[in-house]
Computed example of a mutant assay.
Amino acid sequence: NGHGTHVAGTIAANDQHGGISGVAPEANLLIVKVRGGEDGSGDYEWIINGINYAVEQEADIISMTLGGPAHVPELKEAV
């Protein structure tokens, strides 16, 4: 719920307009939303699909902040 936007800015913000630079201002970001509920909730399948999509797009790094109550072998396999 906005956390990903904050993290993306910390990573890739650039100072082209007199702002602040992130830690990797020349990075290219692939933004993939994997949780859709207004409260940040979602389904493990959405997360798995997002990881698989990022891998298919040849992302070098995937950053996610998640938590959940269940052990999901398919999620472990995707990671």
Rank of each mutant, 00 (worst) to 15 (best):
N1T: 15
N1V: 12
G2Y: 07
H3Q: 12
H6A: 06
V7D: 00
A8N: 04
A8V: 00
G9F: 03
G9W: 00
T10M: 13
T10H: 06
T10K: 09
I11R: 06
I11V: 15
I11W: 02
A12S: 10
A12T: 02
A12H: 00
A13Y: 01
A13I: 03
A13T: 01
Q16K: 14
H17D: 13
G18N: 10
G18Q: 11
G19A: 08
I20V: 15
S21E: 09
V23N: 02
V23A: 15
V23F: 06
V23E: 02
P25A: 08
P25R: 06
E26Q: 14
E26Y: 06
A27I: 10
N28Q: 13
N28S: 14
N28H: 08
L29R: 04
L29G: 01
L29W: 00
L30G: 04
L30E: 01
V32A: 01
K33W: 06
K33N: 12
K33Q: 14
K33T: 14
V34H: 00
V34A: 04
R35S: 12
G36Q: 07
G37W: 00
G37R: 00
G37Y: 00
E38F: 07
E38Q: 04
D39L: 05
S41N: 06
S41R: 09
G42I: 03
G42N: 06
D43I: 12
Y44T: 09
Y44M: 03
Y44E: 01
W46P: 00
W46G: 04
W46Q: 10
I47F: 01
N49I: 02
N49K: 15
G50P: 01
G50V: 04
I51Q: 01
N52Q: 14
N52W: 06
N52Y: 03
N52S: 08
Y53Q: 11
A54D: 00
A54R: 02
V55T: 09
V55R: 13
V55D: 03
V55Q: 10
E56T: 13
E56I: 11
E58Y: 06
E58A: 15
I61D: 03
I62W: 05
I62P: 06
M64N: 03
M64A: 15
T65W: 03
L66N: 08
L66W: 01
G68R: 05
G68S: 07
P69I: 04
P69M: 11
P69W: 06
P69D: 10
A70D: 10
V72F: 05
P73K: 12
E74L: 14
K76A: 14
E77H: 05
E77A: 15
V79N: 09
V79E: 00
